[in-house]
Simulated assay, not measured.
Amino acid sequence: MILYYYPGACSLADHIALVESGLPYKLMSITHEKKTEDSRDFLSINPKGYVPALELDDGEVLTENPVILNYIAEKSGKLLPKKSIARWRSLEATAFMASEIHGSYAPFFLNFPETEKERARKKITKAFSLLDDQMGDKKYLVGEDITIADCYLFWVLMASERIGLELTERLRSYYDDMKLLPSVSRALAEENLG
């Protein structure tokens, strides 16, 4: 498999999941000009033009974080509980982050007016409060084992630093603990994010 990524972008969630899963993968970075590191046109691989994109061994390409994360979990048999409500809570949290948080970062990365940024800050802060409540006293977002939701949550929290958003004490502690996981450390190092 080949993960097309941009360093520090949301594709980091998939990168962490690939490391954590133990599945073999190759990395291929893309530039803002939509070129791969080996000079191919990224739009010919993913016409949507953004990361992540996961090229499977048969040449098929998957896009969208929730889909790629779920694929990695299904393929590896890891990162997603097989039975119990924890499976559905993990999928629910992943979808929530994709729909309610990830898109709310757009005003900060696309130079929107300050009023739009403030509206987005409030929406993200509310979403973080809900995730904080969901986590409760658990080690990870939905239980005692890491899931795809944690891979995505790590990136969502990392992106909050870029916009100066204050995290709750529990989410800050969780984020700091996640940075120490071998899979997270490796993914950060492979993307030169130190």
Results as ranks from 00 to 15, higher is better:
Tyr50Gly: 03
Val61Asn: 09
Phe42Pro: 04
His32Glu: 15
Ala13Gly: 12
Leu79Trp: 06
Gly77Glu: 01
Pro47Cys: 12
Tyr50His: 10
Ala17Thr: 01
Lys26Val: 00
Leu62Ala: 11
Asn46Ile: 10
Lys34Asp: 03
Gly22Asp: 07
Ile30Ala: 08
Ser39Val: 00
Leu12His: 13
Lys34Met: 09
Asp14Ser: 15
Leu80Asn: 03
Ile85Phe: 12
Glu37Gly: 07
Leu43Lys: 13
Met28Lys: 14
Ala9Asn: 12
Gly77Thr: 04
Leu23Gly: 04
Tyr50Arg: 08
Leu62Thr: 11
Lys78Pro: 01
Glu64Lys: 07
Tyr71Trp: 14
Asp14Ala: 15
Asp38Gln: 13
Asp38Met: 06
Lys34Cys: 03
Lys83Ala: 14
Lys78Met: 01
Ile30Val: 14
His32Lys: 14
Thr63Pro: 03
Thr36His: 09
Glu64Leu: 04
Ser39Cys: 09
Asp57Lys: 11
Ser84Asn: 14
Pro81Lys: 03
Val67Thr: 15
Ile30Leu: 05
His15Gly: 12
Lys82Met: 12
Lys35Trp: 05
Ala73Leu: 03
Ile45Cys: 07
Asp58Glu: 10
Lys82Arg: 15
Asn46His: 15
Lys78Ile: 05
Ser21Val: 00
Asn46Lys: 10
Val51Thr: 11
Tyr71Gln: 04
Lys34Ser: 07
Tyr71Ala: 05
Asp58Arg: 02
Glu64Ser: 12
Lys26Glu: 15
Glu74Val: 00
Leu56Ala: 07
Leu80His: 03
Ser84Ile: 00
Ser29Gly: 14
Ala73Tyr: 06
Glu74Trp: 01
His15Pro: 08
Glu60Gly: 05
Leu27Tyr: 06
Glu64Met: 05
Lys78Tyr: 03
Thr63Val: 08
Gly59Ser: 07
Asn65Gly: 14
Ile85Trp: 13
Leu43Asp: 10
Leu56Asn: 07
Gly77His: 08
Tyr25Phe: 15
Glu60Ser: 13
Pro81Arg: 04
Val61Ser: 02
Ser29Asn: 14
Asp14Tyr: 05
Ser29Val: 02
Glu55Trp: 06
Ile72Tyr: 00
Asp38Thr: 13
Gly49Asp: 10
